[in-house]
């Protein structure tokens, strides 16, 4: 599943702000492994950080949550909101691990961050659920998603799939 540009770069900042606000309201704001996006590292260079959100619908109608019933889910949409990205090319690898920590599926996204983007970028990938092994083989429980950027794991987040 390739990159889903579900909003233009001009509107990305406002959308991200709304998304963060909503995530905070629903209790699903996530701390990336890369640290607080607003905190400088020791050498005053901000490190890329990522927030991983899970939604039952793609695009702007996304409603972030941390638990989903597979019986009602067509896809698990995984949104990664990047911050502090240096301008230029980047390659994101999303690794989706099922309950036994086995790698289930991966998603590759490559994108270009312009200097005007303020270091932000968002990706969205859809993990198929309806009609898949997740339903047919009852692969429910706690799943883990790792977001890597340019070969380095930056953020990890769990999501619960229920019957």
């Amino acid at each position: 599943m390739r990159l889903r540009h579900y909003h233009s770069r001009r509107t990305r900042a406002s959308f991200l702000a709304a998304l963060f606000l909503f995530a905070g309201m629903c209790g699903c704001a996530l701390m990336p492994q890369g640290g607080d996006p607003g905190s400088p590292s020791g050498d005053n260079v901000l490190q890329p950080a990522a927030q991983i959100l899970f939604c039952d619908k793609p695009g702007t109608s996304c409603s972030p949550a941390t638990s989903f019933s597979v019986s009602k889910l067509r896809d698990l949409n995984i949104v990664v909101n990047w911050s502090n990205l240096p301008p230029g090319n980047h390659a994101q690898l999303l690794s989706v691990l099922h309950t036994a920590n086995g790698l289930y599926q991966s998603f590759h996204n490559a994108f270009l961050v312009s200097p005007e983007a303020g270091g932000s970028f968002s990706t969205s990938d859809a993990l198929p659920v309806a009609g898949t092994w997740i339903v047919q083989r009852s692969l429910t429980g706690t799943w883990t998603v790792q977001a890597s950027l340019d070969g380095q794991i930056v953020a990890t987040q769990t999501v619960t799939l229920t019957p």
């Binding site: 390739r2 990159l3 090319n89 980047h90 390659a91 996204n109 490559a110 270009l112 340019d150 070969g151």
Partner: peptide
Amino acid sequence: GAAGGDIP
């Protein structure tokens, strides 16, 4: 994903 080739 980015014109001119997808790279890190």
